[in-house]
Amino acid sequence: MKKLLLGLTASALLLTAASAQAADQLTLQLKWVTQAQFAGYIVAKEKGFYSDADLDITIAPGGPNVAPEQVIAGGGADIIVDWMGGALAAREKGVALVNIAQPFKRSGLMMICPTETGITSEADFPGHTLGVWFFGNEYPFFAWMNKLGLDTAEGGDVTVLQQSFDIQPMIQGQADCISVMTYNEYGQALDAGYGPDNLTIFNYTDMGNDLLEDGLYVMEDTLEDPAKVDAYTRFVKASMMGWEYALENPEEAAQIVVDSDDTGGAELAHQLYMVGEVSKLVDATDPALDMATYERTVKALLDQSIITAEPEGGFTTVVTDGL
């Protein structure tokens, strides 16, 4: 009997070990620091949606010195959150990124100009300094300027300032207009006393100039492995559960984000504001890529020579078809 019990115990331990090893390990590289822009993924991890899907997910925060395309190319991540402009530009340069899902359906990008600059329409841009982020975030801006026929080269129609990731260039008068995200820097502008009454606001989505943001990308060769595709599919499904939960429970989601930020930089009120604004951009029920927006994004990138040829294989529906 003792030997039987020992045998059963050993078998149970083996089964437990096998079960523990069953979870597929994936690393998700965020495009920016830990904040509610990524609430769906952070909530999915905290609420156990990934573990329920037999996934062991590591979420790696980004920052001003982190390029997700380089991280995944170097083997530091399995999946990245990226804007399509940066992803397709990297693909053309040899980093074979493929979009597997697109939770963000609309752009959160805007340009804001204090009324004292005298800028009330696009026609007023010439002769002014316009701030924009770089590191792949500049592509929508340059596509817009190209559409307007404005020369952005040195000495051209407008002066382009590579701005910091805050509203200081506007406050300090370094730029007449600056780039903001509806869910982040625009909130900072509101806190600083700016708003629709003293700003001219150019919303990329409202103008029809929005390019796809915050999609999920993997390396093309990994899609040849059915087991990897299965893991990606479970990841996207669990992530969308995270997004749905976050948007339905904004206060809890904001607190989860704050608690997940190891730097201590995430502030609760701002994260709650961010969840509310992100909810206007994300479709928590449909992670599929919208082809009309994809084609508009590609055309804008081609027109600006950000990419030089129509991309082939830049997206796949194999994951979202399997949900």
Results as ranks from 00 to 15, higher is better:
residue 7 G to K: 07
residue 311 P to N: 05
residue 163 Q to T: 02
residue 70 Q to A: 13
residue 270 H to C: 00
residue 265 G to F: 11
residue 81 V to W: 00
residue 185 E to F: 01
residue 171 I to F: 04
residue 91 R to M: 02
residue 200 T to F: 14
residue 154 E to G: 04
residue 5 L to E: 14
residue 111 M to W: 14
residue 154 E to C: 05
residue 117 T to V: 12
residue 119 I to H: 04
residue 17 A to S: 12
residue 14 L to P: 08
residue 30 L to Y: 06
residue 269 A to K: 09
residue 54 D to E: 13
residue 181 M to S: 12
residue 61 P to D: 10
residue 91 R to Y: 04
residue 293 T to Y: 05
residue 3 K to V: 11
residue 261 D to I: 02
residue 266 A to G: 04
residue 62 G to C: 00
residue 97 L to P: 06
residue 59 I to K: 03
residue 262 D to Q: 11
residue 267 E to A: 15
residue 181 M to C: 08
residue 1 M to F: 08
residue 61 P to C: 15
residue 81 V to E: 06
residue 103 P to K: 14
residue 148 L to V: 02
residue 121 S to M: 12
residue 190 L to R: 14
residue 142 F to M: 06
residue 5 L to H: 06
residue 17 A to G: 12
residue 142 F to S: 00
residue 49 F to W: 03
residue 189 A to W: 02
residue 158 V to N: 07
residue 217 Y to S: 06
residue 248 E to M: 13
residue 148 L to K: 08
residue 32 W to T: 10
residue 309 A to Q: 14
residue 240 M to W: 10
residue 103 P to M: 13
residue 267 E to C: 11
residue 253 A to N: 00
residue 124 D to L: 07
residue 70 Q to T: 13
residue 161 L to N: 09
residue 118 G to N: 11
residue 263 T to F: 11
residue 260 S to D: 08
residue 6 L to Y: 13
residue 268 L to Q: 10
residue 228 K to A: 15
